[in-house]
């Protein structure tokens, strides 16, 4: 891994189109500003990984598992 030291308000540039700026440093928390073209997705890593896991897990679901949903939606009109 490339490791660079930066101070507040300093930046790094990745490729020629992604700029990461240190916006604020408070204790063990760093705030980053990211400027990147809109087509490049930017996410907090742990959130992205949680969504990845969730999608892969959700693939195991089959029509049998969703039968309860069918029952629920059938019951709903009765309540109207």
């Amino acid at each position: 891994m490339l490791v660079l030291s930066r101070q507040r308000d300093e930046s790094i540039i990745i490729n020629d189109n992604v700029v990461v700026t240190i916006v604020d440093i408070r204790g063990d928390k760093v705030r980053l500003g990211i400027e990147a073209p809109q087509e490049i997705p930017v996410h907090r890593r742990e959130v992205y990984e949680a969504i990845q896991r969730e999608n892969l897990e959700a693939l195991r679901l089959g029509p049998k598992d969703t039968e309860t949903l069918r029952q629920q939606s059938k019951e709903q009109p009765k309540d109207r």
Binding site: E54, E57, A58, L61, D65, T66, L69
Partner: peptide, 10 residues
């Protein structure tokens, strides 16, 4: 939204 199943249900 996607649906998943956990131990507690959907």
């Amino acid at each position: 939204v996607t649906v998943n199943r956990t131990q507690g249900g959907l």
